[in-house]
Amino acid sequence: QKMEAPGSPYASSPESAPKRAPRSSPPPPQDRPDADHDAAEPEDDKEKPTHLRFLVSNTAAGCIIGKGGSTINDFQSQSGARIQLSRSHEFFPGTNDRIIMVSGLFDEVVKAMELVLEKLLSEGEESNEAEARPKFRLVVPNSSCGGIIGKGGATIKSFIEDSHAGIKISPQDNNFVGLHDRLVTITGPLNSQMRAIHLILSKLSEDVHYPPNLSSPFPYAG
């Protein structure tokens, strides 16, 4: 179905979440028991573990792993995030692409994504293959796509305006039993893609149904 975006500017749209006001109350004393402390203060979404999954070709997977795993180890130590790949024959259903999963705290995941994206874009510039055109495909559960699209398409439209990236969500593919994920394709220069990824990850981190982690980057095995 076609989504009509409302004509109102997004700044005044009721969909945009109110900014969290800074707490003016004094900090709690240090000797309070932890359980009480947890109950009193909601956890910030960015302090919780989260993850992102995205697709890469076998060639791109090789350049992210590096010789003897040197590149991926370097990216993990620089970012603090964990980076896992599906095995060489484990492709996202309907594609010949492997899945990379980056997991950790919000800022760790963002840092790792920057390192990976810079690497992919620099490799893409060296080879003039058609597939090297800078586009990035995130794997997002169906249940979380509604939050990214927003009412009448308002959220995705605001993300596109904010990041200046192209953002498209694939239709649900019913050809594969047990596939409950869709692809979010992001296009544009590196800084636009990173801004879009940041906005989408922020949205996913707020989604109570979005799991903080998966046991494997490839959850589709029979």
Results as ranks from 00 to 15, higher is better:
Ser127Phe: 12
Pro217Ser: 15
Glu129His: 13
Gly94Ser: 09
Ser144Cys: 15
Leu85Asn: 06
Ser8Glu: 03
His89Trp: 08
Pro9Ser: 11
Gly62Cys: 05
Leu121Ser: 13
Ile200Pro: 00
Asp173Ile: 08
Ala39Phe: 14
Ser13Leu: 00
Gln1Cys: 04
Thr50His: 04
Leu121Ile: 14
Ile160Asn: 03
Leu183Asp: 06
Met113Glu: 03
Arg87Ser: 14
Ser77Asn: 14
Lys168Gly: 02
Ser144Ile: 09
Asp34Phe: 12
Gln84Thr: 08
Ser158Pro: 00
Pro27Tyr: 10
Leu115Lys: 04
Asp107Lys: 05
Glu161Ala: 14
Ala221Asn: 07
Asp44Gly: 09
Leu105Arg: 04
Lys119Leu: 13
Ala112Arg: 04
Ser202Met: 07
Gly94Cys: 09
Met194Glu: 05
Ile72Asp: 02
Pro49Ser: 11
Pro189Asp: 15
Asn96Phe: 09
Ala132Gln: 08
Phe136Asn: 01
Arg182Cys: 12
Ala130Glu: 15
Asp44Lys: 12
Ala132Val: 00
Leu179Gln: 03
Ser16Lys: 12
Ala61Cys: 14
Ala112Ile: 06
Glu206Cys: 14
Thr185Gly: 04
Asn73Gln: 15
Met194Asp: 03
Ile99Pro: 06
Asp36Trp: 03
Gly66Asp: 13
Gly222Ala: 13
Val177Tyr: 07
Ser103Asp: 07
Asn191Gly: 02
Ala40Gln: 12
Ser25Val: 03
Ala221Ile: 11
Arg98Ala: 13
Met113Gly: 04
Asp162Phe: 02
Leu179Arg: 08
Ile100Trp: 00
Lys19Thr: 04
Ser77Trp: 08
Gln84Trp: 02
Ile99Gln: 05
Ser13Ile: 01
Gly94Asp: 07
Gly7Gln: 09
